[in-house]
Design a binder for these strands. Sequence first.
DNA 1: AATGTAAATGCAAATTATTTGCAAAAAGGA
DNA 2: TCCTTTTTGCAAATAATTTGCATTTACATT
Lengths: 143, 143
Amino acid sequence: MKDLCRLEAMLKDKGYKLTEQRRLIIEVFNDSPGHYTAQEIFDLVKEKSKSINFSTIYRNLELLSILGIINKLYIESGINHYELCGQVHHHHIICKRCGETREIDICPCEVIGEEQLKSMGFKITDHKFEIYGYCSKCSLLKE
Amino acid sequence: MKDLCRLEAMLKDKGYKLTEQRRLIIEVFNDSPGHYTAQEIFDLVKEKSKSINFSTIYRNLELLSILGIINKLYIESGINHYELCGQVHHHHIICKRCGETREIDICPCEVIGEEQLKSMGFKITDHKFEIYGYCSKCSLLKE
DNA sequence: AATGTAAATGCAAATTATTTGCAAAAAGGA
DNA sequence: TCCTTTTTGCAAATAATTTGCATTTACATT
């Protein structure tokens, strides 16, 4: 809840107005951590008995991204997902047969030196590390 | 050149026909290694004075992906890139604004211990590591 | 509290990458 | 050459996202 206030303060600080819609979008992220698509946000806001337009959602996701409040992440299917910044960081190991997805907390960026990352000439915002293979059950079954 | 023949043989092997268009698409990858978007392939094929339809390109990229001849790279700009499989192992750093994609040869799996990978209980086959951010040009633009 | 103004919203239409249905054309074996 | 199956081109459909514009809203200032 205080988080919510902090985020709202951040908006005001930069001269953005605190609208009902904006509050509802932030609330989605705040209510339960995780990553959401624009569609999911649309549905969740609607559940709160408030209709919202997709263009409003996209415009605000863009804004929150730029302000560094949320992070746009790409998850394989071509649909963008968004998550609050500063959550517990993790990656995934995925079974190619059954699709089981498990979180792993090894992060390559912790292991790779800062300098090496900086030397790439990019302003790095995030990264994806996914390991694919067969889980214990499936590696028995497979072939 | 022999590579091209090998790929073409692979197609025939599986009962697919070897069309002019298919040969031209494979040639793009063969001519110079790298990753291409559908649009880039379209343009490159056109340069060879042969018109080709986008649906043909997409259908063939899909096919070549399934056959394990090329690799589909999902990148955050929303445009998919494709590259030949079996190139020197590398990963990518991708600009979220302009989509510029550069190869990096840091590989997390070399850095993370074998034992740690094994301890996950998966039979690991492959992995993906992508770093996202803004390239030098775009980090200036994006205020 | 009333007002003015810049910012934000909703709506509908545009855009962009990609996919699909279908008739016509081409590949490759018989 | 003929036949069957695959592939292509075309045009239209999707799906996610973006944009233009008139209307509405937030909120600082009277």
